[in-house]
Write a protein that binds this DNA or RNA. Structure first.
Lengths: 359, 359
DNA sequence: TTCGGGTGACTAAGCGCTTTGGCATATACT
DNA sequence: AGTATATGCCAAAGCGCTTAGTCACCCGAA
């Protein structure tokens, strides 16, 4: 039913190996013959059998994507980026979702290896032991997208958290804020430490210090709860860098509830820009956008390079600031406007990621 | 390096075909021999070469997933469901993102076919012509998840929009609402018509009619804009079924801005339950949850059945109601509480989908 | 004792492609 | 004319697995 290479060869009056060499551009083939074979191939709409090719070559032209938790907000953009990079080279990706479950993860890793993937992208902060185990079994390239900054074995591709923290600082400084705090998650997380370091560094350059840092977790609940402590520690706070958007929103609500206006009294910068994508032309929250699609694309590109034996680009991905009303609002005190703005960013199509500029 | 079937056969003192038959449970093999081969296989940790197997069998044990727009909020849950169904049978999926672009879609379809996928899942409301074209080139099973209700060729698996509309109606009725309206997108969309039909049908049963229906688009902007018209047409409206969560939130904000309290004065039900997942224990918006992961799982299961030659389950996926404050709130008028509640559901980790009950 | 039937394994062939090595023919040179 | 060198193509072998067909053997029945 499907057209085989043998069909092309026969129709072109050559042997199968010759046709194969033409298709791959290898071997010595007369120009005239080459052209004839190519013409016939096009004529018959020959499509090589990728599976058989893989077996002969020992390469499947497939890479495995192991997501620690595909349902998380950070997986899809990375995945899209990876796929974009791969599709340029006719590679494809198999997605496996570990769902934070060690047994599932183990099964999926086995499955990936059975399918002879040429490379692996790990998305998410899976336990390092899992990666180490993977590395032992798999001898192809492994890229840990978005994972620990210094993976024990695999190569990491991740957003530049330090630069992101610095961006947040500069945003607050640009609005003239001087009494500055940072509300974030636990300092055991590398990303938390990096963001804080970048934040402090940029503030230092301006001769301003971060007076209060509160560590909790990446939830709205913690953002809300932190307000009380924040105001106790720094009553005249006028700028806050929140460790992620959830904290930012929880904090904004709690501050509003306590009579502080955002941004008039307190400017707030979030992180991840998770709600700001898509159709929204007037987002509430100013947020650092880590460009996760780019992280994915870079991870894919790195893998492609590694498969060619080259050394890929390992530079962290530079973030951007996504401006919103929480730092650049008009500062009027009409609460209803705030409610509207908040509502407007409330149920953004959650993962409608913008294509990268120029796409 | 890797263990081949030949290695197992040699170690077990049998020929390769015999070992193959043991592995597949086919042919006639003495129990004693069978056990010996299996023992050796386990001993050597034999992993069959899936690629070679695929070539010999003519089946790749891979299915292609063609997403019309992977970045959309509806893709990931479906994808996760599909993968869950597939992984139970050691199938895997290749993801391709058409990004609404016909050329990209065409390339991806070619690529999928070249890779000999055994079946295809289409996610999203891609143009029917594309599906028709696909069907012409591909003779395996095709499931159109979440697409048109009556695909021209492929089999459709989709959420039960009619039932969803009915659920919304019953939620409003249960709260004693009587002056009821529906704000939704354009009636050219099948899902819009279905939801409306289900909504009206359930209202009719209770002897109540839907007095106003406003058609626009699935955006917060339309939700906001619709408030004016809604109040003009039905000043004493006390219950609204919004076509999706975006409309619901925009409408809620606009109503609040005009002095109507939600839910005290007007109860609002959304659709998609896009923000209600995850950690939030006290969501703002009551919303119909279409259970998209289940749609995906059903699509995957249907494909599995089709590959076995069976007829799969084609019943639409039943939705649920996800209760929130917008219909069941305490109804006090402390605006700050509302702000907090809204904020709390404002930037939920956008696509943290709950695993289905029992998982 | 011989023949039929069942059992358990094997040999051979095939899937569609790639790579290696060798053999003609054509060209260049002494 | 005779040898070296290039050139273009193909036959053979291999990838790892599966399926079809074959054959030797042992049993019980005649």
């Amino acid at each position: 039913m499907a057209v085989r290479l043998a069909d092309v060869a026969r129709a072109a009056g050559v042997s199968v190996p010759t046709a194969s060499q033409v298709m791959n551009g290898t071997g010595r083939v007369a120009d005239e013959t080459r052209k004839r074979v190519l013409d016939v191939a096009k004529e018959l709409d020959y499509r090589p059998n990728a599976l058989a090719r893989s077996v002969a070559l020992g390469r499947s032209r497939t890479i495995g994507v192991l997501a620690e938790n595909a349902a998380g907000a950070f997986c899809m953009p990375v995945l899209i980026g990876v796929n974009r990079a791969l599709s340029s080279q006719d590679l494809a990706s198999l997605l496996f979702d570990a769902r934070h479950d060690p047994a599932t993860r183990r099964d999926h890793i086995r499955h990936m290896l059975d399918r002879q993937v040429d490379g692996i992208v790990v998305i998410g902060e899976g336990p390092d032991v899992a990666i180490a185990a993977l590395e032992e079994q798999f001898d192809g390239p492994i890229v840990h997208a978005f994972g620990p900054h210094d993976p024990p074995h695999a190569v990491g591709v991740y957003p530049d958290e330090f630069a992101g923290g610095a961006l947040a600082a500069r945003e607050l400084l640009a609005q003239g804020r001087k009494r500055i705090a940072h509300v974030t998650a636990g300092a055991d997380l590398p990303s938390v430490r990096e963001r804080e370091a970048g934040f402090r560094s940029a503030l230092d350059e301006a001769g301003i210090s971060c007076e209060v840092v509160l560590h909790g977790e990446f939830t709205r609940a913690w953002g809300q709860a932190s307000a009380e402590r924040l105001l106790a520690a720094l009553p005249d706070v006028d700028g806050v860098f929140a460790g992620n958007d959830g904290i930012a929103v929880g904090l904004a609500a709690a501050l509003e509830a306590r009579g502080r206006r955002v941004p008039a009294d307190v400017a707030i910068v979030g992180y991840d820009n998770v709600a700001g994508y898509g159709e929204d032309t007037k987002p509430y929250l100013t947020s650092v956008d880590p460009h996760l699609e780019l992280v994915g694309e870079r991870a894919g590109a790195y893998l492609l390079a590694a498969l060619e034996g080259d050394e890929g680009d390992r530079a962290p991905v530079a973030p951007d600031i996504a401006p919103g009303a929480s730092t650049r609002g008009e500062g009027d005190d009409r609460r209803l406007d705030l409610v509207e703005a908040l509502l407007r960013s409330a149920t953004a199509p959650p993962v409608t990621y913008l294509p990268p500029a120029g796409a």
